[in-house]
Design a protein around this nucleic acid. Structure first.
Length: 562
RNA sequence: AGGGGAGUCGCCAAGUUGGUUAAGGCAUCGGAUUUUGAUUCCGACAUGCGAAGGUUCGAAUCCUUCUUCCCCUGCCA
């Protein structure tokens, strides 16, 4: 369960040996999202690793907005990120940090680099920079501006900051090695001119530092010991180290890279998620079908379930793809333990109990959870007219069928055994009503002389309340919706694989005990799955709205499908 | 003159300095219990570690060669 012991992984090994050797005496990590989109399932892994490791080693973990590109960043995203991390159950050390908190220091280090002859102002255009960079097999060419004097560079850099030059006309570059086989080391740009309103610093700056330069210094300023990031930054590590080795800074965090978490039947690219939102293919970033943290939250996934999932996925450098069902399994497993059980009928058939006798036919109570007696019980009232699930009746049952069938018997959950005596159909031949008789000797006890194996759920027509229930299924029909190639060898638009059945809304009958549940209350609807009252649209006592989080495991359906 | 990574069961993943029968989880398949076809419980599940050679009493771990996949040519992060 959620308290499984952390499994050994290569990052823990590194930390263990750093602590043992005295290289480090504490652990400080950080989660550094760019506030340019919503957090998704992949981020949950990074969050869990960074906050989890800090927790396990009695260390600290900072939350830092990596806000160095004002063109893309918005307050809305920053606020959502904070809310998501908090909801996932993590507490960051101190206030939320921002890379922009360090703009002054970053700038000062820029001047230091210039003065030590390790950075220069370059007038090359973006196209020229690209040409000079060379490529994988060709070394780059040095910029003609590379040999400006420190004094000249300093003057130019100060004037860049003062706003004397047009956007994009000049950059500050590191003087490293245009011949390096690592393209990141070919005199990388560390400052660009960009007149853009920043979410934190407003219009104070017209020059903004680049990621590679900002990230390592921000880490060092915060006293980060282990800077954990994903694999694509491996090539950037030499630059991370170079910057810290060439400025006056007392701290040098170690960057360690791990592989991202990919999930089948999901897209996680910010661009693609945004497309789904912008083109109204989903209702928003928090649509319960979205793999965003806020979407999964609305779907009813619990923080514990999400954490269990990423913990099970493990930490390594192996590129990995985890099936979506593993996510559903972890969520289900955690919900099994934590959700009260209630009864709902999603697709009703009317059943008339022909021998119901007022005052004689009685009800039982039922526990809210089979293993949590302390959660109490509620009455499950019976009446002459009840509803059962359409799926639980078959006129011509397949082999192995354990539910209702003409002439057959079945147990009504927490109530009597009934027998179907008559099937009533409309003109079109659809079953519209079942007439059943109950065996009065079977309330709370097994019938004598015969075995009734099947148990179905049901609800009293007069006691039930109506609720909107949204039945969600996975958003895509393809395991890798963004990796399907057509006959021409080109990628097919991933939006073609949207599952038309990913949302069905029904009006269901639910037992009255859920009537006043606040939003985001999770239940198991017995035999159906886990459901949550909608975070936005559910109104307690007035308008019940449920989202299906995930179905129960169904070995019968699996067998049927074969 | 390319560089950086990764290949252990269907999916993850432990295994670190070579030492007994290659952890564990998920999935799957049996079976038991069950008034949720759920849960729970038992059992099965890699003569094999990308491939081929080699070193060794002994190799997933060391050496050689080969092979497959991923990342990198933003004034994005």
């Amino acid at each position: 369960m959620s308290n499984e012991l952390p499994v050994s992984n290569f990052i823990r090994h590194i930390i263990d040996s750093d602590l043992a050797s005295g290289k480090r005496t504490s652990v400080v990590t950080r989660f550094p999202p760019e506030p340019n989109g919503y957090l998704h399932i992949g981020h949950v892994k990074a969050i869990n690793i960074n906050f989890g490791i800090a927790q396990d080693y009695q260390g600290l973990c900072n939350l830092r907005m990596d806000d160095t590109n004002p063109e893309k960043e918005e307050d809305e995203y920053a606020a959502a990120i904070e809310a998501d991390v908090h909801w996932l159950g993590f507490k960051w050390s101190g206030d939320v940090r921002h890379a922009s908190d360090y703009f002054d220091q970053l700038y000062a280090y820029g001047e230091e680099l210039i003065q030590s002859g390790k950075a220069f102002v370059c007038d090359l255009t973006p196209e020229e920079v690209r040409e000079h960079r060379g490529d994988f097999v060709k070394p780059g060419k040095e910029s003609p501006y590379r040999n400006r004097t420190p004094a000249e560079n300093l003057d130019l850099f100060r004037r860049m900051k003062a706003g004397e030059f047009a956007d994009g006309s000049k950059t500050l570059r590191l003087k490293i090695d245009m011949g390096s086989p690592n393209l990141n080391m070919r005199d990388p740009v560390i400052y660009r001119i960009k007149r853009e309103h920043h979410i934190k610093t407003g219009d104070k700056w017209c020059i903004y530092p680049m990621y590679d330069y900002t990230h390592c210094i921000s880490d060092a300023l915060e006293g980060i010991t282990h800077s954990l990031c994903s694999l694509e930054f491996e090539d950037h590590r030499p630059l991370y180290d170079w910057v810290l080795d060439n400025i006056t800074i007392p701290c040098h965090p170690q960057q360690i890279e791990f592989s991202r978490l990919e999930t089948l039947y999901v897209v996680t690219s910010k661009r693609k998620l945004k497309q789904l939102v912008d083109e109204n293919l989903v209702t928003g970033w928090d649509d319960p079908r979205m793999p965003t943290v806020t979407g999964m939250r609305r779907r009813g996934y619990s923080p514990e379930g999400l954490r269990l999932f990423v913990q099970r996925a493990g930490v390594s450098k192996t590129p990995n793809v985890v099936d979506f069902s593993a996510l559903e399994g972890a969520v289900r497993e955690e919900l099994e333990e934590s959700s009260p059980r209630v009864i709902a009928v999603l697709d009703p058939i009317k059943v008339t109990l022909t021998n119901f006798e007022a005052g004689v036919t009685t009800s039982r109570t039922a526990p809210f959870h089979p293993h949590h007696a302390e959660w109490g019980e509620r009455e499950v009232p019976i009446a002459p007219v009840i509803y059962v699930e359409r799926e639980d009746f078959a006129e011509v049952p397949p082999a192995g069928w354990q539910r209702l069938t003409p002439g057959g018997e079945v147990r009504l959950r927490y109530s009597y055994v009934i027998k179907c005596d008559e099937v009533i159909k409309d003109a079109a031949g659809n079953v519209i009503e079942l007439k059943c008789s109950l065996d009065p000797a079977t309330l709370g006890q097994n019938p004598v002389g015969r075995k009734v194996k099947g148990v179905i759920h049901w609800i009293s027509a007069e006691h039930a309340i109506q609720a909107d229930v949204r039945l969600y299924d996975r958003l895509f029909t393809e395991a890798r919706p963004d990796a399907v190639r057509g006959e021409d060898g080109q990628y097919v638009d991933f939006k073609q694989f949207i599952n038309p059945e990913s949302l069905k809304t029904v009006t269901a009958y639910v037992e009255a005990s859920v009537k006043d549940a606040p939003p985001e209350t999770r239940y198991q609807f017995e035999r159906l799955g886990y459901f949550v009252t909608d975070r936005k649209e559910h109104v307690p006592g007035q308008k019940p709205v449920f989202n299906r989080t995930v179905t129960l495991k169904d070995t019968w359906a699996a067998k049927e499908a074969k």
